[in-house]
Design a protein around this nucleic acid. Structure first.
Length: 583
RNA sequence: GGGCGUGUAGCACAGCUGGAUAAUGCAUCGGCCUCCUAAGCCGAAGAUCGCGGGUUCGAAUCCUGCCACGCCCGCCA
């Protein structure tokens, strides 16, 4: 509809100039109508009343009167001080059918590096951690759909305490000892015994218990502390031992993500920036800054309060022993990222807000830009916060299995003629898609409580609903075979277009606008909402417009159906909702 | 205690760079499968937009005070 706005705007401006009000901000005021029965674009005239010395309703009426007819407009109606523009069905159809794919993508592609997930490789994904991956991957996909050149990156935390604990546990404990320590916890699910993320997290959890409760916890802490220290000074042997400990875990985690359709273009290890000297050089630079300070024990910090940070203002980037901290390495990492891309986007949990603020401010202090950051709230369980450490979790692997099982039952019921393999393929696609959609459809800053019944719903407002509309469109295309194309220049005249047709064309017309906004503002749920509307509109079209009737195939309707099919497919793909293997 | 975020029908959630009757799904009630796949469609009912002030022609939206919940306030990651 941005296209319609560009057509209407000059007409409006001309009229207002004639009325001596050319300076009024029409462009900002002319916006998409809220409700379909209010047309497609609406101009509230209240703001013009004072400048023109007329009542809003009178302004709207005289504008409606004065505006010349335009082929793109079916009507221009003044209502309650608003001026409503309704696009003509013919114009929408012609524009859509003659435009090609270019009309749905950007004219100015950007290069974007999106860092997401970057979870510590110490255990399997639970639903909470997976929100990051689903959000991040959807941003990656939507940016690509928009035409941007995207790199999806996973920052591997391959040093520090969490990995050290895992490495220590694998070296000092055996399975029997581990299970003995975890006797009071839920036993491991036998289904995942081959997945190393599930296997090794038991070692990690057992070590955490020993660190707190064992008689020689002091010496354990000492040993782990030495490992951490060595890794932070770039000790190659220790870093190799760490990698041997975490890599199988990371591989298991990536297997889970792959099932959700999530993959990465690049993995960058935190330790690289220590071993290549970047972190050391960075700390020297920070030392030269005017807001630099030093504590009694030789630790270094920046006084970010001097730059407006509220609350805790001292940002420590160097320990007393000279080693770096996580945030310090993150700054080095970001400087490197800026050499790779002209736009940076990070997906982070809300617990990283302060940290991100510190990193961002320090980057600015160094003359660099901040990355754009998408924060999300945590997913809770009805029993409370999820925690790998406490064992209070819903594992993504289990959720996906459950989703598939439920989908299988539904498909078997609905399509008894399908064989087991077909059912399994459909159920896998439907199950994983439903899980993704359930998470992506809510805005990231909203904390939400995970409930099985919501995650596994397959009704309107869910991924399967949108997938089903697409399947319908596919089914029609398959049934009808070769249908002659329509000439967009010679479409039938659509004076009494059915509601369903109008609704579908209108929804197709706003797809580009919504995608632009979702990408620009990093808010994928806007596009998820749109996809549901598109599916809904397709259903209305399907209801009102018989493509294959007694008189043969309506080639125009078929062309609209095909366009919708492509746009649905594109939308599903943009949200990472997967088509069944057989299709 | 300080900082940030959230609070919208029974439940979940959209709208938040101010504009018309607050959108959608679940649940509830009623209707639609001889007709391109009913995971669907049509209709009904359901909201003091957390509470109080303020700004404005106009506030769910902006400002302010209060209340509730979440996250953060390591020389952890």
């Amino acid at each position: 509809m941005d296209r319609l706005k560009r057509l209407v705007l000059p007409l409006l401006q001309e009229q207002l100039e004639g009325m001596g009000a050319g300076h009024l901000p029409v462009e900002a005021m002319l916006n998409a109508s809220r409700e379909a029965d209010q047309g497609d674009l609406s101009l509230p005239c209240f703001g013009f009343a004072k400048a023109l010395g007329q009542a809003p309703a009178a302004i709207a009426a005289s504008l409606a009167e004065a505006l010349p007819d335009h082929e793109a407009l079916a009507s221009v109606t003044p209502v309650n001080g608003y001026l409503n523009f309704t696009a003509s069905t013919d114009w929408m159809a012609q524009t859509l059918l003659s435009g090609g794919d270019a009309q749905f993508t950007t004219d100015e592609p950007r290069t974007v590096l999106i860092e997401h997930t970057s979870a510590n490789p110490n255990g399997p994904f639970h639903v909470g951690r997976a929100r990051n991956a689903i959000l991040g991957d959807t941003l990656v996909r939507l940016n690509r759909l928009w035409g941007n050149d995207v790199t999806a990156e996973y920052y591997v935390d391959d040093m520090g305490k969490q990995v050290a604990v895992l490495a220590w546990a694998l070296e000092h404990l055996d399975s029997e000892g581990v299970e003995g320590l975890l006797a009071e916890r839920e036993p491991p699910n036998p289904r995942w015994t081959a997945k190393q993320d599930h296997e090794r997290v038991r070692f990690y959890q057992a070590a955490q218990i020993l660190r707190q409760e064992s008689d020689d916890k002091a010496s354990i802490e000492e040993a782990i502390g030495q490992l951490v220290h060595a890794s932070e000074h770039g000790d190659e042997a220790v870093l190799e031992a760490f990698e041997a400990a975490y890599q199988p875990v990371l591989d298991g985690m990536l297997t889970t993500l792959e099932r959700l359709g999530i993959s990465f273009d690049r993995f960058t290890k935190e330790s690289e920036f220590v071993t290549n000297g970047d972190v050391g050089r960075l700390m020297e630079e920070l030392k030269a800054l005017e807001i630099h300070g030093e504590a009694d024990n030789g630790a270094h910090f920046l006084d970010l309060g001097a730059r407006g940070l509220k609350g805790k203002t001292d940002f420590f980037y160097r320990r007393g022993d000279g080693s770096s901290l996580y945030a310090t390495r993150d700054i080095a990492y970001h400087r490197w990222k800026w050499t790779q891309s002209t736009a940076l986007v990070n997906v982070l949990g809300e617990d990283h807000k302060l940290q991100a603020q510190q990193v961002g401010m320090t980057l600015e202090e160094l003359g660099e830009q901040r990355p754009e950051v998408v924060f999300y709230s945590f997913i809770k369980l009805p029993e409370g916060k999820m925690s790998t450490r406490r064992g209070n979790v819903v594992f993504m692997d289990d959720l996906l299995e459950e989703a598939k099982a439920q989908a299988e039952a539904v498909v078997r019921d609905l399509r008894p003629e399908y064989d087991d393999e077909q059912i399994s393929n459909i159920a896998e696609a439907v199950g994983t898609s439903a899980v993704r959609f359930n998470i992506i459809k809510v805005s990231p800053e909203k904390g939400f409580t995970f409930r099985w019944e919501d995650a596994l719903t397959f009704e309107a407002g869910s991924a399967p609903f949108a997938m089903y509309s697409h399947t319908r469109a596919c089914s029609i295309a398959n049934n009808l075979g070769d249908v002659p194309a329509v000439d967009p220049e010679k479409l039938p005249v659509l004076t009494n277009a059915p509601d369903g047709l109008r609704q579908l064309l209108r929804t197709l017309c706003v797809q580009r606008d919504v995608l632009a906004k979702a990408v620009d503002e990093h808010r994928p749920h806007l596009f998820a909402e749109h996809l549901l509307q598109l599916a809904n509109a397709y259903n209305a079209f399907y209801r009102d417009c018989k493509i294959a009737g007694e008189n043969g195939v309506d080639t125009f309707y078929f062309a609209v159906s095909e366009l919708a099919r492509h746009r649905l497919k594109e939308g599903l793909n943009g949200l990472g909702l997967q088509a069944p293997k057989t299709m």
